[in-house]
Computed example of a mutant assay.
Amino acid sequence: MTGTQAAARRTGPAGAPPPARGGRPRIRITPPSRRTSLIVLVLLTVLGGGTTWAVYGSGWFRATKVTVRGERVLTEAQIEQAAAVPLGGPLASVDTGAVRERLLTALPRLARVDVARSWPHTVTVTVTERVPSAVLQNGRKFTEVDRDGVRFATVDRAPAGVPLVRLTPDASGAAASLRVFGTSRLLQSAIAVSRDLPDALHGRATAIRVRSFDGISVELTGGRDVMWGSAEQGAFKASVLTALMKAEPHATHYDVSAPSAPAASGS
């Protein structure tokens, strides 16, 4: 093979670059011209501006409706009024965080609020209401308290199936308990007891009586009662009480104040 033939084989026909190793031809990518890049940039700008106008300037995505979900005691009208969602403007401009804060501030009964935009025209408000775990009596009114001790509503009637907390300190323990723990702490203990009651007793506890820090008892329907003691070891006491009531279903008095040595009496 002559030198001329070897050079031609290396360069390929008509001076083209030699094929890549393995026999595949090399692909040369030509960068777009400045004019092409400018055209693409203009098109993207036009499309972006059109999208912005459609969302904010046109009537296609206006906020025209509020949908409320999850309400139980509160009405849809109460929630809509407290939410004060601005209607008529762009849906994208609705401040969902501000709506949520307005609801939580205006309606203490709400434990959780989620606000979302539902395209093309709706603001969806999903609420979770607090559930009363105990009731405190204030004159002729009743204050509902949830399992976390939050007092969230004052009502004219105590809700059915929710125990009423009665602070009735006895003569021997009144002064010491009130001096050391205070009324607020004793009420918190009663609410903790209500929270820890076995599920089987929910709706059957009519009152929680607090005589002292470690003298808390629970009154049940059917003339039965439970001596609970202090609010400590609540989960343990609940499991012991459940087993005790199964073993002694006809007893009228149960004592789990010392959960390692429970007792039942009466029939």
Results as ranks from 00 to 15, higher is better:
residue 6 A to S: 06
residue 7 A to N: 07
residue 8 A to L: 13
residue 11 T to H: 11
residue 11 T to E: 09
residue 26 R to K: 10
residue 26 R to D: 01
residue 28 R to C: 03
residue 30 T to A: 13
residue 36 T to D: 05
residue 40 V to I: 15
residue 42 V to P: 00
residue 47 L to M: 14
residue 49 G to C: 14
residue 50 G to S: 15
residue 57 G to T: 02
residue 64 T to A: 07
residue 65 K to N: 12
residue 67 T to Y: 07
residue 69 R to L: 13
residue 69 R to S: 14
residue 72 R to S: 04
residue 76 E to R: 08
residue 85 V to A: 06
residue 94 V to F: 04
residue 95 D to A: 12
residue 105 T to M: 08
residue 106 A to K: 13
residue 109 R to N: 11
residue 115 V to Y: 01
residue 124 T to E: 11
residue 125 V to T: 11
residue 129 E to Y: 08
residue 130 R to L: 08
residue 132 P to I: 07
residue 137 Q to I: 03
residue 138 N to L: 11
residue 143 T to N: 04
residue 150 V to C: 00
residue 150 V to R: 04
residue 153 A to Q: 09
residue 155 V to D: 00
residue 160 A to D: 14
residue 169 P to D: 01
residue 174 A to Y: 05
residue 182 G to D: 04
residue 182 G to A: 09
residue 184 S to P: 00
residue 185 R to W: 08
residue 196 D to E: 10
residue 199 D to R: 12
residue 208 I to L: 08
residue 210 V to A: 08
residue 223 G to P: 02
residue 230 S to Y: 06
residue 232 E to R: 12
residue 236 F to N: 13
residue 243 A to W: 00
residue 244 L to P: 05
residue 244 L to Q: 07
residue 253 H to K: 08
residue 262 P to T: 05
residue 266 G to A: 04
residue 267 S to T: 11
